[in-house]
Design a protein around this nucleic acid. Sequence first.
DNA 1: TTATGTTGTACTCAATCTGAGATGAACTCA
DNA 2: TGAGTTCATCTCAGATTGAGTACAACATAA
Lengths: 277, 277
Amino acid sequence: MTPDPARDESEFLANYDPRDYDPVSVTVDVVALTIRDGALHVLLVRRGNAPYAGMWALPGGFVQAGGPLQGTDAEDLSDAAVRELAEETGLSAKGGALGRMHLEQLATYGSPGRDPRMRVISVAYLAFAPELPDPEAGGDAADAAWVPVDALGLTESGDQRPGTTRRLAFDHARILSDGLERARGKLEYTPLATAFCGAEFTIPELRAVYEAVWGEELHAGNFHRKVLSVPGFVESTGETSDRGGRRGGPRPRLYRAGDARLLHPALLRPSREEEIR
Amino acid sequence: MTPDPARDESEFLANYDPRDYDPVSVTVDVVALTIRDGALHVLLVRRGNAPYAGMWALPGGFVQAGGPLQGTDAEDLSDAAVRELAEETGLSAKGGALGRMHLEQLATYGSPGRDPRMRVISVAYLAFAPELPDPEAGGDAADAAWVPVDALGLTESGDQRPGTTRRLAFDHARILSDGLERARGKLEYTPLATAFCGAEFTIPELRAVYEAVWGEELHAGNFHRKVLSVPGFVESTGETSDRGGRRGGPRPRLYRAGDARLLHPALLRPSREEEIR
DNA sequence: TTATGTTGTACTCAATCTGAGATGAACTCA
DNA sequence: TGAGTTCATCTCAGATTGAGTACAACATAA
């Protein structure tokens, strides 16, 4: 005789107590990247409270679980990422500075001991935005700033070089390293670089994005040819920039992002030889 | 006057009660893929308990948090993935069937309401293994089996086509879809396909892996040339298989996995044109 | 044993893509 | 006005690609 599944299920839910399980907290942390003065910057906050008070960290915080009933205050993970970003840095999502922002999940970090308070699982997000205003500290943050990535002394293994002044809390150096590597890779086969630019941009501006993220100079002529040959990467506006390059040169043409979601053929990094093995 | 950070921190930890926060549970789910009879299979378990009792699901379960003190019973997320695999399917990690298995994190799923019991955040892992024995159900699982991926009627949007007999619980159809897409992509630029083969394999065997995962036939001659031209992808053993192909042909040579971690140049899917936009 | 069909491996060839450099006009700045 | 910079395009040799050919080695069925 088969039991009635519906009755089984409701009975089960009535007797279920989540507190029978070990407590785990879930946080979101955001690696928000932008380009300022031709250099890649990451959004960091200085922690106002313990643990790691005074050190720098990725903006983030606890997810609002909404209790067992998961009522209206329960939020999706990506919503929590945007909320924490807004709370701690004053950058607002709706219509504001974060409007054209691209957000995607990066990875989840959950080693025991990564947070001294308790078992914390952190879902990291990766955000790309055009040049944004300076942030204003809020919430738990004592300070907030765009920090040049190069100034953090990150090594390939996800640590910070000794002597670096701005130390990162928790395992945020590892998370940031992973985010940077993801960003570098995504520029190769997606039109993500356009998310770092304004609504209209020039090919040299786009090239500057690639050079800042990849940390190497590109052949201007070949880059130009390649970008225009990939279907759907950029589309011409017919307009021309109202000024030439910083130190001379003709006025570059303006483009906007096309409708491609994948670049084919891809733009590969010149110096990938080293990291193959 | 600056407060003493060390004293601040210990005082804070003493007063900290995790139960002040909403309860959240964290689970791991595993998308374990293998190749059987030339077709891609995924490891599924039939649920023995509510919710979704009787339906099929990815093997997985709750992470052992280890309490506030995070003692010895606290486990890393990837360890939890291997443990759940072993518990529910009888496939053992150490030296056993899961020995040559490749495991990587896929993504984290945490929409409110994805589990009717409470707020559950699920960290999904992706596993690749050579041909494995049939699993044996254990733990919460009423049954366990390798199921051909094609038999699940997955659509691009992460749902199952109506009329599919084996229905998947929770949002596991979406997770499986994401895992398959990740696997397809990873074959392009990493030597992952060798994880589906035994320690020694032939080029045609490797081609069969690509064809099973990508779901399309490849040009044998060009594939052969390409694989051998990518540095570090495979290395010759000098040996020859003791039998020709299933229906004739010369004995293929044997290779083992090389030391490359990235394929350069990559092996691109022929039919990527469609998914570009 | 023989005949037939299949398969692994190597080769060819034209089309395409790539990196590196050259060119010239348009522009900024001193 | 002159010097130096930059955008955009072109050139060209080398590498890579897809598609096809060739042939010997093999399994299977007659």
